[in-house]
Simulated scan of single mutants.
Amino acid sequence: MATTTTPPPTTEKGTGMDGQKEKGLRPGNHPFVVPQFTGKDYASFCLAGALCATITHGSMTPIDVIKTRIQVDPALAHHSLLSGGRVIVANEGARALLTGFGPTAVGYLVQGGAKFTGYEFWKKQLVQIAGDQDTAVAYRTAIYLGSASIAEFFADIMLTPLEATRIRLVSERGYATGLVSGFARMSREEGLRGLYAGFIPILCKQIPYAIGQFTMNELCHELVNRSMTDEKRKSLSPTVNVGITLSCGVVAGFTAAILSHPADTLLSQINTGHGPTGSMPHRLKVLAQQAGFRGLFAGLGPRMIMTAGLVSGQFTVYQGIKDALGAPPGLEIHKETSLV
């Protein structure tokens, strides 16, 4: 993932960062080099992704509580982030804004590790399938989309039960005292079917979210890279690089929120037992028809604010942890730049 504006150095005789061997083709005068990430590299990606996701999502718990309540509680449906928060605090106390913190922190710990590692892994695989630099660059957007989608699919298998527990804790006051008791109650009363009732909706939410998050971040970094010379890019200060990462993350966050919000609304409805019985596609169709366009985008403003902070924070923390661990940069396939 392009979270830095400075390409890593390469050396002659087919070696790259830290002397790792690179393999690929050399069409014309454009070397096609693909870094061969080690198990240690992927472990670093996983740890950085897990920590950046759980830190940012955990810190956003109060906003997420308000957003979810706006989506599922008719009495709060027309409230803003601030007014909705005031109503919740007035009626239930400030502690209510931290409801679901446990499932959020744990869920996104495992999801973040799997998603960021999977994105790095599948992007590399798809670049290798492309076979040469010109093809990889020409289809870079498809590579971003495919990598994000595949990585998110597997990450959501781990996230779904914990997300279902979080939504139930937020939407039903007194349902359980926390993560363990809430998860145990859902498992006991509803079984695996209940824990994974929102799997299809969460895929519909999280895959567009991941697409917006990673693809827009890559494209924003490409625009930044193409707006300056190699010399200027290499001379940027750490502060400027962090500013670029944050700015690209904000744009990516807005995109992710808009693309995924309708499914996020449906997911909240499904996990609170709303809608008819029947197959999941039927339930989603009926709920979407009942909500209408305006209802599907209820709470979008608060979620855009939350998601902009989440995504920009995640990329910044992710890069910082990777740097601290000595992990190599992710694979870059920006136009008019080398593959790494």
Rank of each mutant, 00 (worst) to 15 (best):
F101N: 00
S147W: 00
I55K: 01
S83D: 11
G182M: 02
I207N: 00
P9A: 09
V106F: 12
E332D: 15
R193L: 09
Y108I: 04
A288V: 09
G93M: 06
L203A: 10
T215I: 00
R140D: 01
D264W: 01
V286P: 05
Y108W: 11
G249L: 03
K124R: 15
V65K: 02
E163F: 13
G253K: 00
T177N: 14
L325A: 09
L162H: 04
T56R: 05
S149N: 05
T141G: 02
V34Y: 00
A90F: 06
C248V: 05
V72F: 07
V33Q: 12
D323K: 15
V87D: 06
R173C: 09
T272D: 08
H78N: 15
S279N: 13
K21M: 11
K205D: 14
P238V: 05
L195C: 08
A197Q: 11
Y196C: 04
T255L: 04
G330I: 07
A327F: 01
P9G: 09
G330E: 03
Y139S: 07
G330M: 07
A96S: 14
E222C: 10
P35N: 09
D18M: 09
F153Q: 00
N91H: 13
A114M: 15
D156P: 02
G299R: 05
V65E: 02
E152T: 13
L109S: 05
L266S: 03
H79G: 06
K13C: 08
V317T: 09
G198Q: 03
L179S: 08
E332M: 14
L76A: 06
M228N: 07
H274K: 15
Q289K: 15
T11V: 11
G112K: 02
A94W: 15
T6N: 13
E190D: 09
D230N: 13
E152H: 02
I129Y: 08
I258V: 15
A105D: 10
V65F: 05
P35T: 10
A324Y: 10
A197N: 12
I70E: 01
I70V: 10
I129K: 14
S227G: 11
G146E: 00
A53G: 06
H334M: 13
V240H: 09
Y175R: 08
S44H: 11
T316E: 07
G243R: 04
F37Y: 15
K124F: 05
L331K: 03
V250M: 12
T255A: 12
L25P: 11
T6H: 14
I244L: 12
G28W: 12
G278C: 11
I143L: 04
G178N: 05
T177V: 14
L325Q: 05
R283N: 12
G198W: 01
R166V: 06
F199V: 07
R188V: 06
T99V: 10
T160C: 09
T11C: 09
A252H: 02
Y209C: 07
I167C: 07
A136Y: 00
S181K: 11
K123Q: 13
V137G: 04
F254H: 06
G212F: 01
P328F: 01
E190P: 06
P276A: 04
G273C: 07
G249M: 04
Q290A: 13
K234C: 09
G131T: 01
S338D: 13
T5N: 08
